[in-house]
Nucleic acid binder design. Structure first.
Length: 571
RNA sequence: CGGGGAGUAGCGCAGCCUGGUAGCGCACCUGCCUUGGGAGCAGGGGGUCGCAAGUUCGAAUCUUGUCUCCCCGACCA
């Protein structure tokens, strides 16, 4: 592609409303433009990067034996009513009506549609295992779209669905996808982790998320430094901390703690460590108040708690509810003399002589002890693990925390949708059975964005070659100079002949201007063709990453580039 | 949905308090000049001031309503 004919609207100034680096760079590099909140147009080089990821995904899915199809984006309400999700999904599902007043929605995911296909067409165990996938635009009316392609409302997703005759088959399909995903993200040049994850509203009972490691990531993940355990914080566990305290219970003591509400304030005021305090939170579980006890420095994990309580809705209680349920105010809550149900984190179980609120403004209690002073309804793991906790799977391993961007998710769905939609088959004995399902998503745009999060410098994007919009850019210094343009044209033609994707900057612009653009859009290889080096018959090859330069003849440059490209693509 | 902020030229912003000619930088167009890191000089084009109603002789500016966008939170494969 000749730059002079291309549409790559780069901008020097940083757009005001772009917060994260990938969003800024994608706007500046002319990859995307916003059309509405969370809705973007993909401009040519943005689209090329997206297509690169799509093709890697397609190749690996096909290699794993999956079949590509394409389902409609607009799907009828009836299917969603059948699965129960029409009522369950909430406002995130964008619902529309046609001229006959029939209800439809824009597909946020396609379990219903694909299961409908399978229940009609698959009748025998001989037709499975089956894996169907598509790469398609999805729509979710997110409450707060942000960070460009990272969390859009409209976004491109690869979604795959597996169908098996039994759980064992489903496990094998899951494992196949898991391995395919590892290959996909490795080929995209990403530093990532596969972590155990909560299944969320999609349902099912087991899942892994593929997380690209990035400080700007919206998810917190932990991994063990001693084994391969890794999990989303929402799900992560740690080894139960055994009581290290064997101290004799000391007499309860009430202390004046004026205006010291937070654990930090109280522990500083009393000159103790936060690990010697216990905090009590009140949550509203399906409209009922429940007290929660945690060691002072620990954080509540609402997802774990929700499962323990077994409620549908869980949120922090309002001040009014706290007052009526405990008779105390936030900052001075304590478990003694409480009437409501108390759930304590397992860590609390071994604690002795700790500090907690006195249920009286400006007072805390010292030397509080379990059983002697109050009782707990239930102990459970209800906290977020923290950096430095012990690994639950191996001995001696320590958990480390990271930030990650979720680019892929694999689920075992089990029978959830096949049962609801009655997708059955006849087994070898002629008996009717329900299909076992799995589903597997990859956010395509998010993968490109997270790749930029991991690969950039102050000058712009540094694309890994497999997903770069072009492999190589030729910057002709003063293309009006015939010697220069002749050499550049020759180079351009030779590279195209070899199948190298090359952007030829033939614009009549000053060198610095061209270099800035080349750096910004992140093309991995740059060849500078200038009169200065052509005197010796040389051109300059510079790699975007690392910045090494070499002076080569045109012929050598062509074969060198061809070699680098083929190696990077694994051809 | 709760809290905060912003809508003025393609982009980034000033002007608003104290009503009266709409302005700056970048980008764009023309010419000259320049060609190894977003050059220089000269000339030029471009804006229903988000939308609507109101106050006023007169509204970008004051009032009310409304829409959109951004940030924090809740929410979310």
């Amino acid at each position: 592609m000749r730059y002079s004919q291309s549409f790559i609207p780069t901008v020097k100034e940083t757009p005001a409303d772009a917060e994260v680096i990938s969003h800024r760079l994608m706007l500046r590099a002319g990859m995307i433009r916003k059309v509405a909140a969370g809705i973007y147009s993909y401009l040519p080089i943005g689209l090329r990067a997206i297509r690169k990821v799509e093709n890697i995904v397609r190749e690996e899915m096909n290699r794993a034996g999956a079949n590509e199809l394409l389902m409609p984006m607009v799907t009828p309400a009836e299917l969603w009513e059948e699965s129960g999700r029409w009522a369950q999904y909430g406002p995130e599902l964008l619902r529309i009506k046609d001229r006959k007043d029939n209800s439809f929605c824009l597909g946020p995911t396609h379990e219903e549609v694909v299961t409908d296909i399978v229940r009609r067409e698959v009748r025998s165990y001989r037709q499975m295992p089956l894996n169907l996938y598509q790469i398609q635009t999805k729509f979710r009316d997110e409450i707060r779209p942000r960070f460009g392609l990272m969390r859009g409302r409209e976004f491109i997703m690869k979604d795959a669905y597996s169908f098996d005759v039994d759980e064992k088959g489903a496990d094998a399909s899951y494992e196949k996808m898991y391995q395919a995903y590892r290959r996909i993200f490795a080929r995209c040049g990403l530093k990532f982790r596969a972590v155990e994850a909560d299944t969320g509203s999609i349902g099912g009972n087991w899942s892994h998320e593929f997380m690209v490691l990035a400080d700007s990531g919206e998810d917190a993940i932990v991994s063990c430094n001693g084994c391969d355990y890794a999990a989303n914080v929402e799900k992560a566990e740690s080894k139960v901390i055994e009581s290290a305290e064997h101290a004799e219970p000391r007499p309860l003591e009430k202390v004046h703690t004026p205006a010291k509400k937070s654990i930090e304030e109280v522990s500083e005021f009393l000159q103790i460590h936060a690990t010697s305090t216990v905090k009590m939170l009140i949550v509203k579980a399906d409209e009922k108040p429940v007290a929660v006890l945690l060691r002072g420095d620990h954080e509540l994990n609402e997802i774990k708690l929700k499962k323990i309580i077994g409620c549908d809705e869980l949120e922090m209680a309002t001040d009014e509810m706290i007052a009526s349920a405990t008779g105390a105010t936030v900052g001075f809550l304590g478990p003694i003399d409480q009437k409501i149900r108390i759930i304590a984190d397992t860590t609390v179980k071994g604690m002795k002589n700790f500090v907690c609120g006195a249920n009286e403004v400006d007072y805390h209690l010292k030397n509080v002890n379990l059983e002697r002073d109050f009782t707990v309804s239930k102990y459970a793991d209800i906290r977020n693990v923290t950096h430095g906790d012990q690994c639950p799977r191996c001995s001696g391993g320590i958990l480390e925390m990271w930030r990650g961007i979720e680019v892929g998710h694999v689920f075992k769905l089990g029978l959830k949708y096949s049962k609801a939609l009655n997708a059955t088959f006849l087994d070898a004995d002629g008996k009717e059975q329900t299909v076992f399902m799995g589903c597997y998503g990859i956010g395509i745009g998010r993968t490109v964005a997270s790749c930029i999060e991991q690969n950039h410098d102050e000058n712009g994007i540094i694309f890994p070659l497999p997903i770069a919009p072009y492999h190589c850019i030729i910057s002709a210094i003063n293309p009006k100079d015939e010697i220069v343009s002749k050499a550049a044209e020759e180079l351009y033609a030779e590279l195209l002949k070899l199948g190298v994707e090359v952007l030829y900057d033939d614009r009549d612009e000053r060198p610095g201007f061209k270099f800035k653009d080349a750096d910004l859009i992140g093309i991995p290889l740059r060849i500078v063709v200038g009169a200065k080096n052509l005197v010796d018959g040389k051109v300059e090859l510079k790699q975007r990453r690392g910045g090494e330069t070499e002076l080569l003849t045109i012929t050598d440059a062509v074969s060198r580039i061809d070699g680098i490209v083929k190696e990077a693509l694994g051809i």
